[in-house]
């Protein structure tokens, strides 16, 4: 299929980008890396008359890290930039794993982390990582600036809570408290270049009351989902045994609601939520008790 005719606008600052969006209303769509929106346009899944390209907006670039506040990822930061960022590698294991599991090196050079999250596709690799780090989305729009907690950001498949004319400028992933370890495990149909059948992000933190876990899942529910009950089951345990892992895994499977589609059946996804939960928690617990902090 090929794209229908459309107009491309390439604003040079944030104010003009917002102005552009406001002017065209629902006729316009934003493009960051374009690795989703261009493909959707080819397939006529979306048909914007105006495409507002953010690639020349200077306010949207960059990655900054402040040990007390966390990592701030600009809307135009690519998946590879984040995946190879030194501070991210040290402190945000799940984020980096998710970046490196995404597509292939060429696509990662174009695709953006924030774009992956804004697209709100249930299998989006970065979404579980944003969940476990309890990211904050910094938004700018006609009403000025505001922050949206990530838990409130994605409202359904391909739907987010941005108001008309709003743009995500950046996202902050707060620094996990104390020692921490995290990972993202993705299951696909092959070893590279696939959408997740199931994705699991796990963050373990050493707190005053012992270990604390956060677990989030991709591709198994319409909205990002945390396994709160599984997190409670694991809380306080630095080296969970098989029985505890199994209980947590079962609780995680109860928290999700996968569909059957051409990529995987519901039953397989549920089984894999259990298996990947066991693996992710074990990896994080081992790293947390070992010397390595990721």
């Amino acid at each position: 299929m090929s794209m229908l005719a459309f107009e491309l606008e390439r604003p040079r600052d944030l104010a003009s980008a917002v102005e552009s969006l406001g002017r065209h209303g629902s006729r316009a769509m934003l493009k960051a890396g374009g690795t989703d929106v261009i493909v959707w346009m080819h397939k006529h899944a979306v048909q914007p008359e105006v495409l507002v390209d953010l690639s020349e907006v200077p306010e949207l670039g960059g990655i900054s890290f402040y040990p007390h506040r966390g990592i701030k990822i600009g809307a135009m930061a690519t998946v590879n930039q984040v995946g190879t960022h030194e501070d991210a590698r040290v402190h945000y294991g799940a984020l980096v794993d998710a970046c490196l599991s995404h597509s292939d090196p060429l696509i990662r050079n174009k695709a953006t982390v924030v774009g992956n999250v804004c697209a709100a596709v249930p299998s989006g690799d970065l979404i579980p990582a944003f969940s476990v780090y309890e990211a904050v989305m910094h938004v700018y729009g006609p009403g000025g600036e505001r922050d949206i907690a990530f838990a409130d950001f994605i409202t359904g498949p391909r739907k987010n809570s941005l108001a008309p004319g709003e743009i995500v400028v950046s996202a902050t992933l707060p620094m996990p408290s104390g020692r921490s370890a995290a990972c993202y495990i993705k299951l696909g149909r092959r070893n590279a270049l696939d959408l997740a059948q199931v994705g699991v992000a796990c963050l373990a933190m050493q707190g005053s009351k012992g270990a604390e876990y956060r677990l989030a899942y991709g591709a198994v529910s319409p909205r990002p989902v945390r396994a709160a009950e599984a997190e409670d089951i694991l809380a306080g345990s630095e080296s969970p045994d098989e029985a505890l892992l199994d209980r947590a895994a079962k609780a995680a499977a109860a928290a999700v609601n996968p569909i059957t589609d051409v990529r995987a059946g519901r039953e397989y996804r549920l089984s894999m939520v259990e298996e990947l939960t066991r693996r992710a928690v074990s990896i994080c617990a081992e790293r947390l008790t070992g010397r390595e902090s990721r």
């Binding site: 359904g156 498949p157 319409p222 996968p258 059957t260």
Partner: peptide, 11 residues
Amino acid sequence: QSYKNAVKEWK
């Protein structure tokens, strides 16, 4: 067949 009977309720 399984697709026909599958859970496909996400919208």
